[in-house]
């Protein structure tokens, strides 16, 4: 397997040889909420996973559809990549929000800039554990509501239902849409920036 073909495997040009700093953002949410979809919509590589080998049957299908055809849960996380400039590359991790996957946080996501909690208002409870964990760790995060075309909820209702502090951004998004997902990331980084400058001042 030479370099060329292994790059084809990830479907993207290799990173610039000058890249020296990798950053992480984690997108966390319940089953089928669209994490993989969001990672895919902005990633320059097809989302990869450590468990790729076990889930090949579902290539090209979102995580919700993929699990239909298999009997075991195997995928720990999947991730995508955005080259920011000649020195920096950003890795996006889609992480399951359930408790039993949370050990990944220490193993893989230490040093993460911040997190996006992806919420489906039809199943907001799926995000509770993740939000509790993030608050517990003091990890900065924003909440993004992935639009599944369900019943409309006013943002303030969602905010209240999730018991979010006023300073935590809450936005709507369509995880399939590249611009929308990009806006989610920018909202997170802006939030981090304001927290950071406030702290540094």
């Amino acid at each position: 397997m030479d370099l060329k073909s292994s790059d084809q495997a990830t479907g993207a040009a290799p990173l610039p040889s000058t890249v020296s700093n990798a950053l992480k953002i984690v997108i966390v949410g319940g089953f089928g909420v669209g994490k993989t979809t969001m990672v895919r919509s902005v990633s320059e590589i097809r989302p990869l996973s450590t468990e790729e080998i076990m889930t090949r049957a579902g290539v090209g299908i979102d995580d919700a559809g993929e699990v239909r055809g298999k009997t075991t849960t195997t995928v720990a996380f999947d991730f995508g990549r955005i080259t920011l400039n000649d020195e920096m590359v950003l890795y996006l991790f889609g992480a399951p929000g359930q408790q039993r996957f949370w050990f990944l946080w220490d193993r893989l996501f230490s040093g993460t800039l911040g997190a996006v909690v992806l919420v489906d208002t039809r199943r907001v409870q799926d995000s509770w554990y993740a939000i509790d964990r993030l608050e517990h760790h003091g990890m900065p995060f924003i909440v993004a509501r992935n639009d599944f075309g369900g019943p409309e909820h006013r943002p303030e209702d969602i905010r209240e239902a999730l018991d979010l502090s006023e300073d935590i951004p809450l936005i709507d998004c369509d995880a399939r849409d590249r611009q929308s997902s990009k806006k989610v990331l920018i909202t997170l980084v802006n939030h981090l920036y304001s927290l950071s400058t406030r702290e540094h001042v």
Binding site: N85, N190, T197, H200
Partner: peptide, 14 residues
């Protein structure tokens, strides 16, 4: 929290 200058670069990249 991350360094603001790093965050600024991330924003530009995004």
């Amino acid at each position: 929290l991350p360094d603001p200058t790093v965050l600024k670069q991330v924003l530009v990249g995004l």
